[in-house]
Each structure stands twice: as structure tokens, then as C-alpha cells.
């Protein structure tokens, strides 16, 4: 007969690393080239639905129409909602605390999530008017806007 042995539960820590490269496509590329080269923000208008979308897209989410035009939106905007991130996580782009806000750029019907800086945490209000602070060296990604700040 086999003697009964107690085994300690066996657990291991591992990780998987995956590298990728996301392509922004037709509408996305136009947006990022414009922000990088001209500091101009673009949205996609749908004439059927009378909406201007950010992020820009080639297809209207609502009516499935093809969107080919783009219009300038912002750069000023309004805080629609916000939160103060008070805890640290490796995935966070910044050390806590920092403010994440959803900002509806003037002329757009949908909001953009970004950082809000140069403001005291207890001074942030929904409805607050804000403007983007652009990076000096822009690379064609969303951090070409460093953050938004109050007017």
C-alpha cells in the first residue's frame, strides 16, 4: 500500500508579455496627424444623426452611415464628469493622486477622457470650462495633449 503523503498546495507566479502595434486607420490617422502637425482636434460629423463623434470614426455608430468628412472641434471644452484617482496601480499612467475627467470638446457630442491638471482637487466642478495643453514634441498619439486645465 502506498503511504499517504500530504503535499503543500502548489502555486507559481508567471507572466506573459505581448507586444503589439495598433493602427489607427483612416479616421484615426487623420486625427493624429492633425493634432501632431497643427494642434487641431478633429471629430466626425454625421449629417443624418446630427452628431459629431469623438473619437473620429468612418462609420456612424447610430445609423451605420459612412462618414468621410471631418470637422474641427474644441480646443476648448467642458468637464462632463471626473474622478480623483487616489490609489496606485502599475497600469496607471501617473502616480496617484491625479484627476481623470471626461471633457466634451466644443462642437462634439461625445466626451474625451484625459487628465486635468493645474487645478486643486477640491476646485474641480462638472461644467468647468477647460483647454488643452499641448506637448512641445508631438508624436501623433493622445498624449500630444499633455492634459487639460481650467480656463
Amino acid at each position: 500500500m502506498e503511504t499517504k503523503t500530504e503535499y503543500q498546495p502548489f502555486e507559481v507566479d508567471q507572466h506573459l508579455t505581448a507586444r503589439g502595434n495598433y493602427w489607427a486607420g483612416k479616421a484615426g490617422s487623420r486625427f493624429f496627424v492633425s493634432i501632431r502637425d497643427k494642434k487641431k482636434l478633429l471629430g466626425s460629423p454625421c449629417k443624418t444623426c446630427n452628431k459629431v463623434f469623438w473619437p473620429p470614426r468612418s462609420i456612424c455608430t447610430f445609423c451605420f452611415g459612412e462618414l468621410k468628412e471631418m470637422v474641427e472641434i474644441g480646443p476648448l471644452g467642458t468637464v462632463e464628469t471626473f474622478t480623483v484617482v487616489a490609489y496606485a496601480e502599475p497600469i496607471h499612467p501617473r502616480p496617484a493622486p491625479f484627476i481623470y475627467a471626461v471633457i466634451r470638446l466644443d462642437g462634439a457630442d461625445t466626451g474625451m477622457a484625459h487628465f486635468l491638471d493645474e487645478v486643486e482637487i477640491d476646485q474641480v466642478r462638472i461644467g468647468m470650462r477647460v483647454k488643452p495643453v499641448f506637448a512641445t514634441e508631438r508624436k501623433g498619439n493622445i498624449l500630444d495633449i499633455r492634459y487639460f486645465k481650467p480656463l
Partner: peptide
């Protein structure tokens, strides 16, 4: 397919 994003 650099000319399109996944949705396109």
C-alpha cells in the same frame, strides 16, 4: 492593412 483600423 495600415490603411484601416479594426472597425474599418
Amino acid at each position: 492593412r495600415h490603411d484601416v483600423d479594426q472597425a474599418e
